[in-house]
């Protein structure tokens, strides 16, 4: 077997590319399997006419927030949990207030637990779909509308949706 160094060099280069390929592979894998708790950042298309609602049970959806690196907004849900029938739209507000004297751009990143729930939690309307801008001392009410898919496994009665709020003002400025 005569293997030229060139061929081996090509393999090395291909593996370098593979390292970078791991990034989208990871994303796709997580999306398809929902294994990361990373829920969709796209709006779920909800049609009330064809929606099936499972009235036999209710699921508790909890909401928690984390302000990354002491992100200086007040950022809390108006209510810490709601109980919904799978298939019906759950609605609640989040309150955000910029506690500083400077303009801050925030990005909320969602994450859900348990992981199996990821593909069953749909967001019809979420402030996490885009960055939010608050001027000095400005306050905002941010609505959230979610649906728990009726096909959610029966043994799951409680799930938690967590939002981590990041200060992305400098990201925006660099663009």
């Amino acid at each position: 077997m005569r293997v030229t160094p060139a061929k081996l060099g090509l393999i090395a280069l291909a593996m370098f590319g593979f390292g970078f390929l791991m990034v989208p592979i990871y994303d796709v894998f997580c999306k398809v399997t929902g294994l990361n708790g990373k829920t969709d950042v796209n709006a779920y298309q909800y049609d009330p006419k064809i929606a099936e609602i499972d009235t036999s049970r209710k699921v508790e959806v909890q909401f928690i927030t984390t302000k990354n690196e002491g992100m200086e907004w007040y950022f809390e849900p108006s209510i810490y949990s709601i109980k919904v029938h799978p298939g019906e739209v759950g609605v609640l507000d989040f309150i955000a207030e910029n506690l500083t004297a400077r303009r801050i751009i925030g990005q909320a990143i969602p994450s859900v637990t348990p992981f199996e729930v990821t593909n069953y939690l749909h967001k019809v309307e979420c402030f996490c779909f885009a960055t939010q801008v608050l001027g000095p001392h400005e306050k905002m009410v941010m609505p959230l509308r979610i649906i728990v898919d009726p096909n959610l496994p029966k043994h799951i009665k409680k799930l938690t949706l967590s939002y981590t709020l990041f200060d992305v003002t400098s990201f925006d400025e660099s663009m």
Partner: peptide, 8 residues
Amino acid sequence: AIPGFINE
């Protein structure tokens, strides 16, 4: 404890 993600 992973920033941006929730574990249980």
